[in-house]
Amino acid sequence: MMQKQREDKIPSYEKINYALRPAKAVERKMLCDSFLRLSEFSHISDYQYIGFGSAYFSDFSLFHKRLGIDKMISIEHDDDQKERFEFNNPFNCIDIKYGEASKVLPSLNWDIRSIVWLDYDYSLSYSVLNDLYYLISNIPTGSMFLVSVNCTSASCRKNRVEVLQDKLKEYKNHIPPSTTSDQMAKWGTAATFRDVINNMIKHCIIDRNSCRPSGTHFLYSQIFNFHYKDGAPMLTVGGVFYDEGNKEQFEKCCFSNFDFYKDEEEDFLIEIPNLTFKELRELDAQLPSKELEEVELPGVKKEDISKYSKIYRHFPTFAETTF
């Protein structure tokens, strides 16, 4: 699911088993729910899914099984380990393309409505924004795309903005001018990253629109602004790309019905309370509930109940099994 960073850091797929990251698992299921709504544009199984499958392909498995998507492309930067990725490819319908995303993205077939998840395990960087540039300059109307980045704030408290400017090179002007180093503390880095990504998207769309007749202009509506933390703080931001002619279909998708719908700066924080199986079952029996105050469980903090109630439908359960 993650793309390996250029510099030879140890890739996160070698450090952690993705399947066991609960917040990510919740996010994945929420995304899956929302993808289904795209059927207002086209039947969901007609979409192609493009992601970074890594060696685990968790997202590919879920989206193939749940949505029936069978045009799937996994972009894999690490071509040293081709054999391993091919071996782990769980389905016959996943085509693994090797190379940097910025090189692979322009070479794909973009005549098909697409769901694209650029799921990085590293921070917002020049190369992430390059990938985004090539994505947005190609993606067709009625498509959905997401970007996930690590949002660990830079330790240098005084000059986080300068550090980010240096990293983003030619894209540095997408950092809102009012951003201060202090604002980038904690989740503030994620907020700044969302601003940069959002500005980048807007900029690319203005370019694409500059010679399109009115009535056919491309639009982007943000749907997701997830914050979560299985280890490092992560941001997932994304939405739907469509043109003015598809406005009605977009509205019919009713994305705003989702609890996790966030179309602006405000984020949806996925927090995983530590609860036992018995507690989960007991809470499930009381959910959904219009009056959260009334949901009770002896010894369990109100705060954890509230966290759980936001994500209970998507809550993952892990169990040890012997194969």
Partner: peptide, 20 residues
């Protein structure tokens, strides 16, 4: 000019392949 701006992403796409 608008028509250069709007075509530039396509130029970049093709250029990326060739320079690569």
């Amino acid at each position: 000019a608008g028509c250069f701006r709007s075509i530039k992403p396509k130029m970049m796409n093709l250029m990326k392949q060739t320079t690569d």
